[in-house]
Amino acid sequence: MNIPFTAQLINMCAALLLLIAFAMLSQRRILSLINLFALQGLILSFSTAVVAYTTSQHHLYTSAALTLLLKVIVLPLILHRLIRKLNIKWDVETMFNIPTIMLIGLALVVFAFNLAAPISQMAGTVTKSTLGIAMASVLLSFLMMITRSKAVPQVVGFLAMENGLFFAATSATYGMPLVVELGIALDVLVGMFILGIFFFQIRVAFDSLDLKHMEKLKED
């Protein structure tokens, strides 16, 4: 095996991202979920910086710094504040039992790896082999959003999905143009604020953050 050391480092980060995606999927507590999300952001930022160093693409340094600022510091802080204000630190109910979810997750990973194999053969980047992992983490975050009934874990799942997309962009094409990235970062931040306000509205309306209540269209 003769992969350069930096590529090995990126592969390692990719593996850790997948590990965290699974940890999030199996996590019962909201507080740990947010900490895991911050850790995911940290690894993402580190791997982006390594890609920037390897390929001397300077705009990637900016996106690494942006990731660090936004996803490791600002968003977890907002989320921590939110759950403190909403007073919801306790266990999260999942729709299925966790081993079933993990098994579905495993099937998703196999699917994503197979899907990414022909694409990554065409890509000419150093990080082409991590594309499968990036797709897997997008799908896993999606699965997390589907299997949670409470609002906050769904939002964490959404943010984690954005992390996965970012990683996919980095590994397939060395990142999107800076303007697009700035736009997405702003979108996520604003989305977070709006969702934060929504949480309070949902709780006022239904006395709970369980989104099952929103499935009914008519009052009984």
């Binding site: 095996m1 593996a15 081993p99 993990m102 997750g105 495993l106 790896f113 082999s129 992992i133």
Partner: peptide
């Protein structure tokens, strides 16, 4: 405990999968 050990098994399987994805270029 079955959940705990099931997670361990899944992680080990994932290890094998990532080996074939990342390390057999």
């Amino acid at each position: 405990v079955p959940e705990f050990m099931g997670t361990a098994f899944l992680l080990a399987v994932l290890g094998l999968l990532t080996h074939f994805l990342l390390e057999t270029t």
